[in-house]
Every structure is written in C-alpha cells, then in structure tokens.
C-alpha cells in the first residue's frame, strides 16, 4: 500500500506536474484568428518573462517552493535534473499564463503589464504563506482574464451589446488597438489558466522524499507545518 502511494506520488511529481505546466505553457500563447479561424502562436513577450521571474521570487519568498530542498547537493543528480526541469516548466507556464491574459499590443498591453508589475512588486514586500499567495494569484489572473476576455473582447464584438455601449461611452476618444480573435480564444485561455492553477496546487513546497536525503534535512531543520505537502492538502 505504501509502495503504491509512493509510486503515485512520484508519477504525479515527475510526470503529471511537468506535463500540466507545459500544457499550460503551450496553450497560454495560442489564439484563434477572428476572421480566418487559423492558429496564431504568440511567443511570450519580454515583459512576461520579467513577470514570471517576479512570481517565481514570490513562490520562494512565500515558501511555496523551498528551493534548497528542490535543488540540493545531497540529492542524486537525476533527482536534481528532474526538479530543475519542473522548475523551468513552472517558469515557462507562468510566463505563458501572463501572456494569455495580457492584451497583445497597444495601450492596454502596457496598462495590464504595469498593473501586473505593480501588483507583483508590492507583493514582494508582503507576508505570504503558500495558500494566501495562491489565492492572491487566482484573483490576479481572474481579474485580468475577465478584463481581457470579457470586457475588451466585448468592445470588438461585431454584434455589440450593452457592455460595448458602456465601454464605448467610457472610452470615447481613446483608440484601443487590440487584434480581433475568435471567442474560442477565451476558452483556450481559461483552460490554460485552469491548468496553471492546477499545477500550482499540485506543487509541493518540498518535493516528495525519494532519496532519503530529505529525511535527514527535515530532521535537521525545523520546517513549517505545511512543508512537504502540496497546497491542496
């Protein structure tokens, strides 16, 4: 029974988690052209890489990732390589999650970027635990998603609607240049964000013990109660 649990934990940690994060990364830059219905792949802009670094720093500061236990000299090389790949996947998924909710160009792109930079920068100086950080990120991405895929998309809806009427009145005289994408882009973005958040939920602050080294480390240092468990538990 214990073997099965260990095997499942290893499968989740070394195969499922990177797959979820990479899939979020794949979908985060995918859009569907509004007219031709063709795929448009948008590589992460430079600003999303900066945002991903800031969010990574937040994960470490809040204790959502205990970097010393993810990458340790005492661990076998194979374990370190697997962990490093997972962390790189997380970085890529973060960049693409931001890419997914950032307008592609124009004034709104820079406004959203500034909003994200400001929020993440301010959070660097706040006290967070992993759960609060996760909640905060869900709200951050949720807000940006609603703004981009509901509000801004409504502005360009050819059929119009009350939202378009209100927004047009509010933004009268301001030209907002945003490429027009098919409504399915919003669903793809939602799925990408859901996968990203799911990946974050599965991410354990301390990777599951598989080499015996962590046991030693854990006994030597006092850890917070939540360590070693994923944010879900």
């Amino acid at each position: 029974m214990k073997d099965v649990a260990e095997k499942n934990r290893a499968l989740l940690h070394f195969i499922v988690l990177p797959t979820i994060l990479l899939t979020a990364g794949l979908l985060g830059g995918l859009r569907i052209d509004g007219q031709t219905r063709q795929f448009v792949f948008i590589a992460p802009p430079l600003v999303t890489l900066v945002l991903a670094i800031l969010s990574g720093a937040l994960f470490v500061r809040a204790g959502a990732i205990d970097l010393h236990r993810w990458l340790a000299i005492e661990q076998p090389m194979l374990t370190n390589v697997a962990h490093l790949l997972t962390l790189i996947s997380l970085f890529f998924a973060s960049a693409q999650a931001f890419n997914s909710v950032l307008p592609e160009s124009g004034l709104l792109h820079w406004m959203f970027s500034f909003f994200f930079l400001w929020a993440l920068w301010i959070n660097q100086f706040s006290n967070f635990d992993p759960r609060r950080l996760l909640r905060s990120l869900i709200i951050l991405f949720g807000t940006a998603f609603v703004l981009k895929h509901l509000l801004v998309a409504a502005l360009y809806d050819p059929q119009g609607g009350w939202l378009k009427a209100i927004a047009s009145t509010l933004l009268q005289g301001i030209s907002i240049d945003v490429p027009r994408f098919a409504p399915i882009t919003g669903y793809i973005s939602f799925f990408a964000l859901a996968l990203y958040v799911g990946g974050l939920l599965l991410l354990a602050p301390v990777p599951p013990d598989n080499s015996g080294v962590n046991k030693l480390a854990l006994s030597e240092e006092a850890l917070p109660e939540s360590s070693g468990q994923s944010s879900l538990e």
């Binding site: 195969i15 990177p18 797959t19 990479l22 194979l78 697997a82 790949l85 997972t86 598989n210």
Partner: peptide, 18 residues
C-alpha cells in the same frame, strides 16, 4: 528502483514535450 525509472521517464518526457 521504480522511482528511479519514473524519474528517468519524467525527464525524457519533459524534454520531448518541451
């Protein structure tokens, strides 16, 4: 041993998928 195999599979799969 099984964990090691899963680790190797995970590394190869992650690299291929990426």
């Amino acid at each position: 041993m099984q964990t090691r195999l899963i680790q190797i599979t995970g590394i190869i799969w992650t690299l291929v998928y990426a």
